[in-house]
Design a protein around this nucleic acid. Sequence first.
DNA 1: CTTGAATCGGACGTAACGGCAGGTCGTACG
DNA 2: CGTACGACCTGCCGTTACGTCCGATTCAAG
Lengths: 236, 236
Amino acid sequence: MWTIGQLAQATRTTVRALRHYDQIGLLRPSERTQNGHRRYGPDDLRRLYRIRALRTFGLSLDEIATALEAPASMPTLLRAHLASLSRRATEIDALRTQLTRLLDHDDPADYLKALEMMAMLDAYFTPEQQDSLAARREELGPEAIETAKGEWLTLVESLLGCVRTGAAPDSREARDLVARWDALAAGFHTGGAGTETAARQMWAENSEEISARLPWGADEMRALMVYVNEVRSQHA
Amino acid sequence: MWTIGQLAQATRTTVRALRHYDQIGLLRPSERTQNGHRRYGPDDLRRLYRIRALRTFGLSLDEIATALEAPASMPTLLRAHLASLSRRATEIDALRTQLTRLLDHDDPADYLKALEMMAMLDAYFTPEQQDSLAARREELGPEAIETAKGEWLTLVESLLGCVRTGAAPDSREARDLVARWDALAAGFHTGGAGTETAARQMWAENSEEISARLPWGADEMRALMVYVNEVRSQHA
DNA sequence: CTTGAATCGGACGTAACGGCAGGTCGTACG
DNA sequence: CGTACGACCTGCCGTTACGTCCGATTCAAG
């Protein structure tokens, strides 16, 4: 039988954590002394070991509670958790390459512009479109990409015209242009498989490529993005 | 000029998030209408784009605020963040291989035992000892490892004797044994370089190796771990 | 003028504890 | 015998980045 302090020390946890586990019912001490002090027995120790091990894997206390309640469910739960860890790993990889690329810029002012472009493209392209871009790009090859880019450029110019003339977002012209835009993007759409994050990394490359050749100012670009989203919401 | 709803839609954020940014002073609308409605201008939009980009990298709002306050500090900050992302990536990798290994067990009951061993070893070995183990093991070669294991076995047996006879944790015998134990572990100690997580993965392998050959029961092992930590705390 | 949509501020909830306050208990020391 | 110290107790607030819900205004359209 151990006191709460001894148990914390033996398992390299903290007294506070053990009290927390007690409070949420995850690990109740098997006894209390007359004056209310917690007393932990060997079974408690074993349970705590299991809890700590599952915690280092990143499971939530809720998940741990249900897992310990029904050990037979553990394989399924752990496999699911392994999958989520893998997703997180590829996501981090994408962010790392994106960050490295960003850090290649020398001028700090470039940082800000690059950041804006990233967020703009992120905001503009729906997640599904981002999803499929990486996969489709390889299939289509570089020449198809180039023609798509050319088409896209003319579309952007037409839309910028709408913005300048203040055409209503529900006008036929605006809606047609956005529809063509979406159709163009749909050409890269493969069906929604693939991970969202891999494609975001993909877009980091494209954004540099595109933004570097942009014949319009960043301000106009921003206005355009807002306008397109507005047109889309009219449609919905 | 945009309303809060329009801005949220244009940037794929939420109205609530924008109000939050306003509240903490991260993004104040440049105007308010007479009745208190927020009005965001182009500069606000640009700032929001930067905020969102930095957020996708995983920076905290606090970090973002300071970064936007002094753009010159961004390279340093981002480089630091990149490093932390890398650390997190290797940590996740370690957890993944550990989990995969754990999932190799067929019997669900084995899961629980394996979990206990993991946590026990994690709790028993100080982080510094874990740190150096991976590196040192390669240097020393397998034969040195084997002799260390043999020594370790005799130490464990002696210490189990102490536990059974109830020797006081501050007795000379107990302290000597634990000192030898620590010295043995110190042989693997290289100086504190290396990442903690890589070594934990290392220990996952070792724990299986060791626990599979353990001639003592898991209960005794647990008692021993607690005892050793107790002796150590006497020393401190 | 009325109705539905958008906005406002405020409050509570989240996960897993850390940290502090104020009180109790046992014991070792002068 | 008083007291000072350490370990324990029960609350309660703070953390992050918002989500969610509330009742009260206000806007835009018919």
